[in-house]
Design a protein around this nucleic acid. Structure first.
Lengths: 329, 329
DNA sequence: TAATCTTGTGGAATCGATTCCATACTGAAT
DNA sequence: ATTCAGTATGGAATCGATTCCACAAGATTA
C-alpha cells in the first residue's frame, strides 16, 4: 500500500508537509502544495484512517447496536441516524444482537476496542449490568427506546401511547377489550404498554378477563395464536383487541378473518408501531405511528452534541407519536 | 485510556509478554500469564483495534454500500451478510448512497481509507468508472444485484424471472399485458426485467401497445401513476399488469381499486420482489420471491473466501428465485 | 562434556499518520 | 543595525499495538 512517506519522497518534501496539505493546516507554499496534490492524484493515494486515528483519537465512526437488523423499526431508526451522521462525515458500524440481550455487553466492548467516537443502543432491556457497563465506558452513549437512570435516552411515552389507544377504542364504544402484549422484561413495549392499557380500563371501570391477556413474541404468528387463545378460551368474547405491535395485530387479524369474524364488525383491532404494512392491509389498521426516523435523528444529534463536549441539560428526549385511525376499529 | 504499556508495568512483564497472552502466541509461563490476565480483569483493559490493525493490516470489518438503508431489500440483504460475517468475528461498516450513484465511488474510497478487509456493494448501476475504480482497488470486492465483467458478483436471473412471470400470466389467459418498469440505467431491474417481459410477449406473438409501457421510480406512488397513465391513455385497456417491483404493483393496485376496477377480475396484477407486504395485502399479490438473505449470505461467504486467498473459479453466483402465485392474478 | 532444544523473556523496530519544536529565510519596524 | 513577525520546512517523538531477534536458563542428546 502506498503511504504518506512515499508521497513525500515523490513530491520531494517531508511527511510533515504532506500532512499539512492533507489537513489544510500550517504553512505550505503554493509550489509545494501543488507538487503534493499532483503526486496524490497520480498515485490515487488515500491516507490510512487507522494511523490517523491512532494519533488523533478520533475515528468518525459511531457504533450502533440493534436487537435485530431486518425489522422496519431498526431500519427506520438507522435511516434517521445515518441521515444526520453522514452529513457530518460519520459512518455507522453495525452490531446486531439478534435479540440475545447478553450480546449487548459483548458488543459494547467490541465497539470500544474499535475506538468508536460514540455508541447508540436500541435497547430491549435495562439490566443493571448493562447500565453499569455503559457507565464505566466513558464514551458518548445514547440509549434508544428504553429509559435508563442517568443515561441519555431517546424514548417514546409508551405508557401514554397505549393508554391513548385504549381510550380511543373505549370512546368508540368497545367496552370488552382484550390485549396481546409481549414479555414484560422489555420494559417499554412489554410492561409500560400493558400498564397503559390496564389503567385505561381501570379508569373506565371496565373489567378485564384473564383470558383476554395474551403474550407473544415480536411476530405475526404470535398474534395469530394470541387471538386464537382469546377466542377459544375467554368466557366472554371481546369486542376489540389492542395489540402492542402491528405484527401482532396483523396476526390477530389473520385469525379472525380465517375464522369468519368480520373486522371491525365482530371484533375491532388496533396495533402499535405505524408500520408500512398497517397502511396497506385490509382493513387498514388503526395504529400508533412512532417516528423511528425522528428517534434516530435525535439520537444522532445528541451523540454529536456529546462528542463535541456540550453537556445537554436534559437526560431524556421524548419523541412524539401520532394516533392513526383507520378502518380496523 | 489504558494501554498495553500500563498492563505490562502493572503485571511486571514486558509489552511483548502481554501481547503474547492476548494473542495466545509464543511462550508464556503460567505464572506470567496469570498475572497479566488478573491485571486485565482488574482494569477492564480492551486492546485498541486501531493500533493492532495498523500493524497487522487486518481490521475484521467489511464495508457494505447500500443504495438505500430502509428498504426491505437492503435490510434482508444486510441481515444475510451479517448472519455469516458475525459468526467469523467480522463487523459491518455501513455506507448509504441514498440512490446517488455518484456517491458509490466516494464511499469506496472512504471505506478503503478505513482499511476494511473487503467490500460488498449492492449496486444499481455498472458505469465504467465504477468498475475501473473497483478494479484498481485491490481489496476483496463483491458486487450484488448487477452483473459486472471480471468482478465477482451475486445476482439473480432478472431476465428469466420477468419472463417466467409473463409466461405465467399468459398461461393464465391474459393476452393484453401492460408493464410498469423503472429506468433502464438500472440494468438488472430496469433493463433485464423489461427484456424478459418483451421477449415473453414476442414469443407468444402478443402485441404490446406503447401506452402499456410505463416507467416509475422505486415507490408506491409511481405504481399508482403508472397504472393511471395506462388506464387513461391506452387505446386498449390491458387485462393484466406486470410491475417490476412489489411497491409498483401495490401502487397500481391502489389505483385500480380506487377507480372501481376489480383485481384480478378486471385487471390482474403481478409484482416482483417477494416483499412482506405482498403477502398481507388484499388481494394477496402474485410475485417473485428473490431470497435477498441468501444473496447476502452468499456475498459474505464469497468475500470471506477472497480474504482467505482462495480464488473461486466462478465469477458469478446466481441465487434462485421462487414464483409465488397468489390471488392477484 | 559439548552441542542442541525447549521454554521464557524483553529490547527495539515497525505500522502510517500527526504534531511539537527547531531552524532558516524574508521583509518590515524600531 | 538589530529585532521581530510572518512564512516555510523538516526532524523526531508519539499514538498502541505486533513481531523479529537476541539472549538466558535448564533439559536433552550425542
Amino acid at each position: 500500500m502506498i503511504t504518506i512517506k512515499e508521497i513525500a519522497e515523490r513530491a520531494k518534501v517531508s511527511r510533515t508537509t504532506v500532512s499539512r496539505v492533507l489537513n489544510n493546516s500550517g504553512y505550505v507554499s503554493e509550489d509545494a502544495r501543488k507538487r503534493v496534490l499532483l503526486v496524490i492524484e497520480e498515485t490515487g493515494y488515500v491516507p490510512s484512517a487507522h494511523a490517523k486515528s491512532l494519533r488523533t483519537k478520533k475515528t468518525k465512526v459511531i457504533g450502533v447496536i440493534l436487537p435485530k437488523i431486518s425489522t422496519e423499526t431498526s431500519s427506520r431508526l438507522v435511516n434517521g441516524i445515518d441521515e444526520v451522521l453522514a452529513g457530518e462525515g460519520y459512518q455507522i458500524l453495525l452490531a446486531n444482537t439478534n435479540l440475545h440481550a447478553e450480546k449487548e455487553i459483548e458488543y459494547i466492548r467490541l465497539l470500544k476496542s474499535r475506538n468508536v467516537d460514540g455508541m447508540i443502543l436500541s435497547a430491549t432491556n435495562v439490566e443493571p449490568e448493562l447500565i453499569s457497563e455503559i457507565r464505566q465506558l466513558n464514551i458518548p452513549f445514547i440509549i434508544v427506546g428504553q429509559h435508563a437512570e442517568e443515561l441519555t435516552s431517546v424514548i417514546f411515552d409508551e405508557y401514554q401511547a397505549a393508554r391513548d389507544m385504549a381510550y380511543l377504542l373505549i370512546r368508540k364504544g368497545y367496552k370488552k377489550m382484550a390485549f396481546i402484549g409481549v414479555d414484560e422484561a422489555d420494559r417499554a413495549v412489554g410492561y409500560l404498554r400493558k400498564q397503559g392499557y390496564l389503567d385505561a380500563m381501570k379508569e373506565h371501570q371496565l373489567p378485564v378477563e384473564s383470558g383476554w391477556l395474551q403474550k407473544g413474541i415480536f411476530d405475526i404468528d404470535s398474534g395469530y395464536n394470541g387471538m386464537k387463545n382469546i377466542m377459544e378460551s375467554a368466557e366472554e368474547k371481546p369486542q376489540a383487541v389492542l395489540a402492542v405491535t402491528d405484527r401482532l395485530a396483523i396476526g390477530a387479524l389473520q385469525y379472525l378473518r380465517q375464522n369468519g369474524y368480520s373486522v371491525p364488525g365482530d371484533v375491532a383491532i388496533a396495533g402499535m408501531g405505524g408500520s408500512e404494512l398497517s397502511k396497506y392491509i385490509t382493513p387498514a389498521l388503526t395504529t400508533i405511528d412512532f417516528s423511528f426516523e425522528d428517534a434516530g435523528r435525535e439520537a444522532a444529534l445528541l451523540i454529536l452534541q456529546k462528542i463535541s463536549g456540550e453537556h445537554s441539560l436534559e437526560k431524556t428526549r421524548e419523541i412524539n407519536y401520532r394516533l392513526v385511525e383507520r378502518e380496523s376499529i
